[in-house]
Design a protein around this nucleic acid. Structure first.
Length: 510
RNA sequence: GGGGCUGUAGCUCAGUGGUUAGAGCAGGGGACUCAUAAUCCCUCGGUCGUGGGUUCGAUCCCCACCGGCCCUACCA
């Protein structure tokens, strides 16, 4: 048995949970579910990032303390994840005492190792961005984002000697070519390092809403610097060395492409500075882009077409939880940008879920009912579907191992197609009840049993529903993947029930 | 301004320095009628962003340009 530790970024509480967050979290959840299925000891961590100036200001505007504000906003993320059937093992909040303790110990270690020093930060500050820029970053003397003049500011800060890690990082990436995937994203990180690293300011005196710097009470840590450490908080850094040893560094950080720099440059360097191995793997995903199609008002409000305006719950309310999970996993491979659209969801829903999977379950149940007395017939020794099933299982296994849920599902749907074709070829509905019908329907049931096991990570609720309709006992997700997906197990004599359509077709106006 | 990614069939995407560039969906035709007007079979469809270069030969390598996107030091 091996172990699998996967994380999402911790989401900034000032955002409302949106489809982008859901995309990342559903992928992490499916990956965790698959690893649990194969028997890995699994730790799936997500959470919320609750410090920083913007949170403090938002709390003030709303007339509550920062802690009260983050209590409210963090809860929205948990509600979204509950709704999407996300089975995280731990949900971290950066305002928790355990996180303060880990951050302080981790950064104290870096300080003790001599990688943190005090200096005066002079920089060009853009009021709109609330951030500093280097003179090279400016666009003709103006802020590159807002195009407005910047002002010279000065602040006394503690600095992290990121520049000291250029060579070590490059060497490390040379030795760990798969530390960041896909390769194009690794190249981005490496190019950035090669371009030269400068030390970074990691504390602030201007705000109080953060983790206090242990050796200088006037300062709190800059929000990103405390946020990254959450991956160590959850495994007990500073509190339980054995637990850290157990889970680190074999972690998989699932992140969006916009935060490559933090996870693939800063974070490995911070780990090195603290005397730890950098995280073994960062899997980068792209963005879901909204192509400009109109979203319904119930979906996103008047005139809104931005992805960040779409609440995951509005989607699950309209399409169901598992269809949205399926769409997010199937439609956009991890690593590239994808298109998000209601039309796309509808197409996946109707073709893959209603027509292929849902209809297959229905037609098999009907024919078993009419030709086999509603009971599963005995399974023959050989079947042409056995090879198809093996291909699907092998492909899916390797796809999940390689962070490619879309390929795992594609392979599963090939098996669904092969099962539909097998029924078509044999046309059991034309036959008189007897051994020929029994053989075909037993084969279809067996294929469906394996298909059900294969969709567990993506659609756990649907999988269990189908499992029960097939007359099978127990919790399909708890069965060992390798055993449950091998051909030749469907017991004879189980009661197969039809039930309502799993995925009623969505009518689309012409 | 600097760095990086990307542009392949109507749509979403695979893919390879070398004979006729693939898949799914959509479109067209046929079969079937167990099933959620589902399914199955066949089929239409691309000067592989533009212009150069390297090469015996490029969609794939190099350069430029055009379009889209990310980062430029707190947006999955």
């Amino acid at each position: 048995m091996s172990r699998f530790y996967i994380t999402t970024p911790i989401y900034y509480v000032n955002d409302a949970p949106h489809v982008g967050h859901a995309y990342c979290t559903v992928n992490a959840d499916a990956m965790a579910r698959w690893h649990r299925q194969v028997g890995d000891e699994t730790l799936f961590l997500t959470g919320t990032d609750e410090h920083g100036q913007k949170v403090a200001e938002a709390a003030e505007r709303n007339g509550v303390s920062p802690q009260e504000w983050t209590d409210q906003t963090s809860a929205r993320f948990r509600a979204s994840w509950d709704d999407l059937n996300i089975a995280y093992d731990d949900f971290i909040r950066t305002t928790e005492p355990r996180h303060y303790e880990t951050v302080q110990k981790f950064l104290q270690a870096i300080y003790d190792n001599g990688y943190i020093y005090k200096d005066t930060y002079r920089g060009l500050y853009c009021v709109s961005c609330e951030d500093y820029y280097t003179s090279e970053a400016l666009n003709e003397g103006n802020c590159p984002v807002h195009g407005r003049p910047v002002t010279e500011m000065e602040e006394e800060n503690w600095f992290f000697k990121l520049s000291a890690f250029e060579d070590r990082l490059l060497e490390w990436y040379g030795q760990h070519p798969k530390a960041t995937t896909p390769d194009t994203k690794r190249n981005e990180a490496v190019s950035f390092i090669k371009g030269g690293l400068r030390d970074i300011s990691i504390t602030r005196t201007s705000i109080a809403w953060g983790v206090p710097v242990p050796w200088d009470a006037k300062h709190v840590f800059y929000v990103w610097y405390d946020a990254l450490v959450n991956y160590l908080t959850a495994i007990g850094y500073g509190r339980d060395d054995a637990l850290v040893e157990k889970w680190w560094p074999n972690v998989h950080h699932l992140i969006g492409k916009e935060i490559i720099r933090f996870h693939c440059v800063w974070w490995p360097a911070m780990c090195m500075a603290a005397g730890m191995e950098p995280p073994a793997h960062v899997q980068v995903h792209g963005w879901l882009l909204v192509g400009g199609q109109k979203l319904s008002k119930t979906m996103a409000g008047e005139g809104a077409v931005r992805l960040t305006d779409i609440a995951p719950q509005s989607l699950t309310a309209e399409f169901g939880v598992d269809p949205i999970r399926y769409y997010l996993l199937r439609d956009t491979p991890l690593g590239t940008d994808g298109d998000f659209s209601i039309e796309g969801i509808t197409a996946r829903y109707n073709t893959d879920l209603a027509n292929n999977l849902g209809n297959l379950v229905a037609r098999v149940a009907t024919v078993v009912g009419s030709k086999c007395g509603g009971l599963s017939p005995a399974l023959p020794v050989d079947s042409p579907l056995a090879a198809e099933a093996k291909t699907a299982v092998d492909t899916a296994r390797s796809a999940w191992e390689n962070f490619a849920p879309h390929l795992a599902l594609e392979a599963t749907w090939r098996l669904i197609g092969a099962t539909n074709a097998h029924l078509e070829l044999n046309a059991p509905w034309k036959m008189e009840p007897g051994t020929d019908v029994d053989r075909v329907m037993a084969e279809a049931l067996e294929a469906l049993r394996i298909i059900t096991a294969l969709i567990v990570p993506a659609m756990p609720g649907t999988a269990q529903t189908i499992w029960e309709r097939l007359g099978l006992a127990g919790d399909v997700a708890s069965l060992a993947f390798d055993e449950v997906t091998s051909w030749g197990q469907f017991p004879a004599g189980l009661t197969v029930t039809k039930g309502d359509p799993l995925f009623p077709r969505i009518r689309v106006e012409a």
